[in-house]
Computed example of a mutant assay.
Amino acid sequence: MSATADRRLPARFALPVTGLILSGIMTIIISGVSTFMALGFSLLALGAWPIAWISSWIIAFPTVLVVLPIVRRLVSRLVAPA
C-alpha cells in the first residue's frame, strides 16, 4: 500500500467531501460574479467578496448534501449506464 493511500479518507466520506468541494467552488465563482457586478471592480468589492462567499457557502454546503443524492438518483433514471 502506498503512503498516499494511507492518508486518504474512507469511502463513506465521499458525499460530504464532494459537497464541500463542489459548494466551495460554485459559491466562490457565483459570489465573485455577483459582488463585482453589484459593486464594480474596486477595493470595496474585493473586501466584500470573502464575506459574500462565506455567507453563501454556509447555505450551499448543507443544501448540496441534501440535494446531491436526489440528483444522482434522478440522473441514474434518465441516463443509461456506461
Rank of each mutant, 00 (worst) to 15 (best):
P50S: 05
I54G: 00
L9V: 06
T35F: 02
G32I: 01
V79W: 14
I51G: 06
L74Y: 15
P62T: 01
L44A: 15
P62V: 00
A45W: 02
R73L: 10
S2L: 00
L46S: 13
R7V: 09
P81S: 03
L78P: 01
G40C: 08
R77V: 01
L43G: 15
T63N: 11
T35Q: 03
A11V: 09
L44S: 15
V64E: 04
L68H: 03
L68I: 03
I21G: 08
R12H: 15
R73F: 07
P69M: 02
I54W: 04
L43R: 11
A14L: 09
R72P: 04
I28R: 05
R8F: 03
A48Y: 05
L9R: 13
P81N: 02
V66Y: 07
A38M: 06
F61Y: 13
I29P: 06
L9A: 11
A82Q: 08
L46G: 14
T4I: 15
W53R: 00
A82L: 11
A60R: 01
I21A: 12
M1I: 09
I51T: 10
L9K: 12
S2R: 00
V64I: 12
W53Q: 01
L22R: 02
R12V: 14
I21N: 10
A11M: 07
G40A: 08
T18E: 09
I51Q: 05
I54M: 02
S56V: 08
V17E: 06
F13A: 06
S76L: 07
